[in-house]
Simulated assay, not measured.
Amino acid sequence: MPHIVLEHGGLDVDIGAICRGLRAALAADPRVPEDIVKVRAYGTREFALGPEYTGFAHVTLRLLDKRGRDEHMSHATLLRDLLQDHLPAGTAISVETVTIASDSFRKT
């Protein structure tokens, strides 16, 4: 944890590079060890947007509940800014954070 999930459509970009950039950006924060950041992406060919958009990128950032609101907000802004810098004009970009209860999270 944290996990970054990128949903996207209509983009002609290197999604692997975007994933690596998202991971590196988040791991640059000293509160986030690089080895715990996981990123995955899901593309779709079918979507509907307003006429001003040709594609979309939506990030869901999943964080454990021990991370405060300020960290949620700063990470969301960081990831949004990275997407804005690396995706073409006409891309609908959004980022949301989700809090995961520590007592219910399991991993091996």
Rank of each mutant, 00 (worst) to 15 (best):
H3M: 06
T77I: 14
A48M: 13
A92H: 15
R23Y: 02
A48H: 13
F105E: 00
L22H: 04
I100M: 07
V98L: 11
P2A: 08
L64C: 02
R40I: 05
L63Y: 10
G43L: 13
H58S: 08
G90N: 01
S104D: 00
D81G: 05
G50V: 10
E96K: 09
D81L: 11
H72G: 09
Y42T: 05
R40N: 08
G10P: 07
R62K: 14
Q84E: 07
I18S: 06
D14F: 04
A92K: 12
R69S: 10
K66F: 15
T60F: 08
V98A: 08
R20E: 13
K107I: 05
L49D: 03
E52W: 09
T44H: 11
V5F: 08
H8D: 00
H3Q: 09
T91M: 13
G16V: 05
A27N: 01
T77A: 15
A27R: 00
V39I: 15
F105D: 03
V59D: 00
R31N: 15
D29V: 04
A76Y: 06
T99C: 06
T97S: 10
A24L: 12
V95A: 10
R31K: 12
L79A: 04
H58V: 09
L11Y: 07
S104F: 04
A17G: 05
L6Q: 05
A25T: 07
I4S: 00
L22P: 02
I15L: 14
T60I: 09
F105H: 07
A25C: 10
R80K: 08
A57P: 02
A24K: 11
L83N: 05
D29A: 07
